[in-house]
């Protein structure tokens, strides 16, 4: 079955980004396809490579990154939600003349159309909320 995941919960102020991570791992283990993971709202902070949690605590950025690299996942971060919150990749930092960037592959900034498309393509779109 083809799944997509929409994450809307806060990256660091809710459990939802991690619940979504466990769900993703389980569906992949069961042999299903994960078409896309779409980060929206406060969950876009997951994509910041500058998060530095204490070494003995959960690193949600790294967890999703590793899973994406292992399974070639499409991690799409809503570009509008990300840019206004200061989550920005190199190309956008140049375009907006910002002094630094803080996200890169496998996280990819793109539009809400990617979520629309995922809703159509997938048999199940599962939301993990705030």
């Amino acid at each position: 079955m083809i799944f997509s995941i929409l994450i809307y919960g806060s990256a660091h102020n809710s459990q939802s980004v991690h619940t979504a991570y466990r769900f993703a791992k389980s569906l992949l283990a069961a042999g299903h396809t994960l078409h896309r993971v779409f980060f929206y709202g406060e969950s876009v902070y997951t994509a910041s490579a500058l998060c530095a949690p204490p070494r003995d605590e959960q690193d949600i950025h790294q967890l999703w990154k590793s899973l994406a690299e292992t399974h070639q996942l499409d991690l799409v971060v809503c570009i509008a939600a990300a840019l206004k919150r200061g989550v920005i990749d190199q190309a956008e930092a140049q375009r907006h003349e910002k002094p630094a960037f803080n996200t890169h592959a496998p996280y990819e900034l793109s539009g809400l159309g990617q979520l629309s498309e995922a809703a159509i393509i997938s048999d199940r779109l599962v939301t993990f909320g705030a």
Partner: peptide, 19 residues
């Protein structure tokens, strides 16, 4: 467990999240 969560999501025609 998490695996059965996935199974449930397959068994029902859609998943609606309340948060």
């Amino acid at each position: 467990d998490d695996q059965q969560f996935v199974t449930l999501a397959c068994q029902h025609t859609k998943v609606v999240s309340w948060f």
